[in-house]
Design a protein around this nucleic acid. Structure first.
Length: 359
RNA sequence: GUGGGCGUAGCUCAAAGGCAGAGCACCUGACUGUGGCUCAGGUGGUUGUGGGUUCGAUUCCCAUCGCCCACCCCA
């Protein structure tokens, strides 16, 4: 975590994730109200910090969009959260997202599994990497996601949490699978997806994309039936997910997804000659007063330069004011996409432009 | 946290001790009241910052800041 001391010697830590803060708000603001079974759906988009050395797809500061569904232990909600993420990715043009799921059990079955796991690898601990020898004592579940090849081979044959779930957790996991399958969502079961903290329960999932490098997770989440209570609230189940915005952008780039073209808007007032300047300047004021977006060239450049600028800056149309137009009390409105032009009386200009959706 | 790489024009990059360059972008003109295409010309730099070596440093050395990549970590 990104922890440091401020000038007064106070220890500060920057937000490391979105779930716990959201849960605190859920409790402190009594968002759920009287109905303790009510399902509360929340979302956040927030900057997140970590102090690890940066690399591709890992920044000291990134942004996370997340959702939390608090109040229900139904497996349908777990599946819905997964479905929401996939819908989000697809809406942004990202296909090929892999869904990996696992169950990390609950306080009734997880501790027993940890003992089983330790017992199964105990004879081989000496051959494992330095970190895993430490993990064996401090956080055995983490043995499962070590990337070291030797360690992976040792843990490959170890019993999985899924084989050691209690009846309730097993039923829940089956329920999640059934709901995913009902939605036609393809998933992989990966017993190596674990969580280090004990308020995480049952479903754990992760979204990965092969277009990325070493940091290939584009979102992750899971169930945390113990968190609300641990934060000081009434025992309340919950499930949620976080999506890394920068990672999503990296995937889009890697896949060559085109950015949505920024739509043209507003009017650029082109004045020709000194006598058109003040009328054009007044027109600028009038259009803005009518709620329209408008700009003008203060450098009094050539009509060519003004047109080029209007094009480059993405204006929807050019409002041309010259000698001819002034004499007739009109302006020439040029559509910068089609190139079509028409003369519009100055008095009708604002209404006319509004009809064009130029605001 | 460990190791490595890179900082030069708005952008992408050359120059490897000896006058800081190219492409793109931008500006002007060809086109006298009309953007996009083409051609010609032009603007643009304390070479991240601070020291050092040298007659001379973008280039070599040290420090510092920033960015990138891998390891690591992953609430």
């Amino acid at each position: 975590m990104y922890t440091f001391e401020d000038k007064g010697g106070r220890s500060l830590t920057l937000r490391a994730e979105g779930t716990a803060p959201t849960v605190r708000a859920f409790i402190e603001d009594n968002i759920q109200g009287q109905d303790r079974e009510r399902l509360v759906k929340l979302f956040y988009i927030a900057p997140i910090f970590r102090q690890d050395r940066p690399q591709a797809g890992r920044f000291r500061q990134h942004h996370q969009a997340g959702v939390e569904a608090i109040g229900s232990s139904e497996p349908a909600v777990d599946a819905e959260v997964i479905d929401l993420a996939l819908t989000f990715y697809r809406a942004l043009g990202i296909e090929g997202t892999r869904v990996l799921i696992n169950s990390v059990g609950c306080p009734a079955c997880a501790p027993g599994y940890v003992d089983t796991l330790k017992a199964s690898v105990a004879d081989s601990v000496e051959q494992m990497c330095h970190d895993c020898r430490r993990r064996f004592e401090t956080n055995p579940l983490r043995l499962l996601d070590c990337k070291n090849e030797t360690c992976r081979q040792i843990t490959a044959g170890a019993p999985t949490m899924l084989d050691n779930l209690c009846g309730e957790c097993e039923a829940h996991f089956d329920g999640v699978r059934a709901h995913l399958e009902a939605l036609g969502i393809a998933y992989e079961i990966d017993p190596r997806i674990v969580r280090g903290l004990d308020y995480y329960t049952k479903t754990a999932f992760e979204f990965r994309h092969d277009a990325l490098g070493a940091q290939d997770s584009i979102g992750a989440g899971g169930r945390y039936d113990g968190l609300v209570e641990q934060c000081g609230g009434p025992a309340t189940p919950g499930v949620g997910l976080g999506i890394g915005i920068e990672r999503v952008l990296l995937v889009r780039e890697a896949l060559g997804v085109e950015d949505v073209q920024e739509s043209r808007e507003g009017s650029f007032i082109v004045t020709i000659g000194d006598e058109a300047w003040l009328p054009g300047y007044r027109l600028l004021h009038e259009l803005r007063g009518a709620g329209l977006k408008a700009e003008i060239d203060y450098r009094r450049r050539s009509i060519r330069a003004q047109m080029r600028y209007a094009d480059n800056e993405g204006f929807l149309n050019a409002v041309i004011l010259g000698e001819d137009e002034l004499a007739r009390g009109v302006a020439t409105v040029r559509d910068m996409v089609s190139g079509e032009q028409e003369e519009v009386p100055l008095d009708d200009l604002a209404a006319h432009l509004k009809g064009d959706g130029a605001e």
